[in-house]
Nucleic acid binder design. Structure first.
Length: 613
DNA sequence: CCCCCCCC
């Protein structure tokens, strides 16, 4: 495959000012001549991500760029390498100390390993046109940049241009300097300003532990590129807490960019901000391009498809509001304010939403049945399904969005008179008949655990694939009386049930089957009864036996076709003695075909929710 | 530097 490099891209990138969106957000087909890991700052924490410097060529020139750390995996899993040709789709640029740094934010590989194209040369200082505001130019006498430990030295690649005229290329001197997308922030950039909306502000929290005590608050900041969490500690709380207001937009600069501990936040960013004493915050009144909260609403009837502890957004009419009550949390050893809202929506379901602490106390909506949009709330299983706000969750009363208008119209017309279904503990979702998705165990684990000791049957959940079904004896003739299911014996031209003391012209065949199933860890034999067979074969045992009598090949084909299908199982391990041999038998109490949407959502929730496991 | 998200 022959790819055409974007001749001239290096020059354009080299000369672009950081707000030159046309250059940084257009597509450049480039070849990576080298990718090299560079050292971290001496002061960087051990957990700091690796940083990679890329020498990239447009066939005519080459230049250096840094790979945004969120793309590090591409180097580590060899998605990119030496001589890779890729479309660089998004870049950014900023100044670290006096040095200009181009950072690759997004790329798409065209060819992993190609021949080197052309004979590109380094862009020299002579090719750097004078640009930008002459008023800010320091001229050629500007002190050359020091190679700082903060940034990889570009020595091999392009020593000259980085130091040559950095000031000439400085961004337009707005009062707030270089406006940066949140997505582009990373620890090796220190001269940025973001323009972001505070979408959430926590209350002031205090702590006291072995390492000391103090207070802190968090905000969630959002712009059109992404979101990031910011935290202020102690003295900074006094300064910034009153100045940052939910919903308003601010210019923020000179905060520290740290690695986020994902475990503790559902915010989609590898980094978080730490507000320092010198952090600058100024409200922005020209609010353009700063999105308000984006929602991904789940209707209330859809909550049963989410697993417990999933995080979701909902919009609903608040039909009832409880007063604030104080509960005593055993866990926290203190009192805690709580308020319950009853939410309803067009799906005809109602669900309870719990607010805690400040959010419970400060809930202050005068109208009786507002529409409220909630973001980042936690799904619980109390009463089938419940919802709960985190301190990081947000709510918007009567937001100016279509979903809100639609709900308002529906409720005022018909919804107010409707009765609503509550979620129940049975059926659907993760509460189905003992199957616990979050407690799935491997077959090997079950065997190792020795479940099913004498008189101690154990229930467990498993996900396994059918490998083989014993075909010789797949069913038994049973009493057709509802809920009897006892084996009947053939007596002349009828079938007798001893339990019911009755004879029947024909029995009802019921499945009794042994399945060999396997998962990644090993295999096991599971015993299944009637519902297992009807689930697996999609027909009753009577129907299957009829096929077996008519055409043994078709019967064998049906059994064969059942193999290689994966199910969720609720099982019961029980010790069993038969013919003086004791063994553990695994009975299937429920077989559940995989719901791929639900399985995928579970995986998604694992990624998004630090509390889902 | 927190990192708990609670109760019934």
């Amino acid at each position: 495959m022959v790819h055409q490099l974007s001749a001239g891209s290096c020059k354009r990138l080299q000369n672009a000012s950081p707000d030159d969106v046309d250059v940084f957000e257009s597509q450049h087909t480039l070849q990576f001549l080298s990718i090299k890991k560079v050292g971290n700052n001496p002061g960087a924490p051990a957990s700091a991500p690796d940083r990679y410097r890329i020498i990239m060529s447009d066939g005519i020139n080459y230049m250096q760029a840094m790979l945004a750390t969120q793309l590090n995996h591409m180097v580590q899993d060899n998605t990119i390498g030496r001589n890779t040709i890729a479309v660089v789709e998004k870049l950014t640029c900023n100044y670290v100390q006096e040095k200009r740094l181009v950072i690759i934010l997004s790329l798409r590989v065209l060819e992993l390993t190609a021949e080197k194209i052309g004979d590109p040369s380094q862009i020299g200082p002579s090719e750097m046109p004078a640009v930008a505001s002459p008023s800010t130019g320091n001229g050629p006498s500007a002190p050359p940049a020091q190679a700082t430990p903060e940034v990889a030295s570009p020595a091999q690649a392009a020593p000259a241009q980085a130091a040559a005229a950095p000031r000439q290329q400085a961004p337009p001197q707005t009062r707030h300097g270089n406006i940066y997308p949140i997505e582009g922030l990373s620890p090796y950039q220190n001269n940025w300003t973001i323009k972001a909306r505070v979408t959430q502000k926590s209350e002031i929290k205090t702590w006291s532990n072995a390492r000391g005590e103090g207070k802190l608050f968090n905000v969630t900041l959002m712009d059109d590129s992404g979101e990031i969490r910011g935290t202020g500690f102690n003295l900074v709380v006094d300064d910034l807490y009153p100045r940052l207001e939910e919903g308003k937009v601010y210019y923020i600069s000179k905060a520290r960019v740290n690695l986020a501990k994902k475990k503790f936040s559902n915010i989609n960013n590898d980094y978080e901000l730490s507000f320092e004493r010198n952090t600058e915050v100024e409200e922005c009144h020209e609010v353009t391009n700063v999105p308000t909260i984006k929602y991904n609403f789940v209707p209330l009837n859809g909550l049963e498809d989410l697993s417990k502890d999933a995080i979701c957004d909902v919009i609903a009419v608040v039909k009832e509001t409880s007063p604030v009550t104080q509960i005593t949390s055993a866990k926290l050893q203190r009192e805690l304010a709580k308020r319950e809202l009853t939410l309803v929506d067009k799906s005809g379901f109602s669900v309870r939403m719990t607010l805690w602490g400040k959010q419970a106390e400060q809930y202050n909506v005068s109208e009786p049945t507002p529409v409220i949009a909630f973001k980042g709330v936690k799904v619980g299983d109390f009463g089938g399904r419940s919802l709960s706000m985190f301190s990081g969750s947000t709510m918007q009363v009567n937001p100016e969005i279509d979903e809100c208008f639609a709900l308002r119209g529906w409720y005022d017309n018909i919804g107010a008179e409707q009765t609503f279904k509550a979620h129940s503990n049975t059926g659907g979702g993760s509460s189905m008949y003992g199957f616990k998705r979050e407690e799935i165990r491997s077959l090997d684990e079950i065997k190792q655990a020795g479940y099913g000791e004498p008189d101690k049957p154990e229930n467990f959940s498993a996900r396994a694939t059918i490998m083989h079904i014993k075909s010789d004896n797949i069913s038994y003739p049973a009493c057709p009386t509802t809920n009897c299911n006892k084996k009947v014996v053939e007596m002349g031209d009828s079938w007798r049930c001893e339990k019911c003391n009755q004879n029947f012209p024909t029995p009802e065949h019921r499945y009794i089957m042994s399945l060999a199933v396997a998962d990644y860890s090993g295999q096991a034999w599971l015993q299944g009864f009637n519902d297992v067979g009807t689930t697996i074969f999609g027909m009753t045992a009577n129907q299957l036996l009829e096929i077996k009598d008519r055409d043994i090949n078709e019967y064998n084909a049906i059994l064969h076709k059942a193999n290689c299908n994966t199910y969720n199982f609720s099982c019961r391990a029980k010790q069993d003695t038969y013919n003086e041999t004791t063994r553990i038998r695994y009975g299937i109490s429920r077989i559940i075909p995989l719901n791929y949407k639900e399985e995928a959502q579970m995986l998604r929730d694992l990624l998004y929710s630090p509390w889902a496991r």
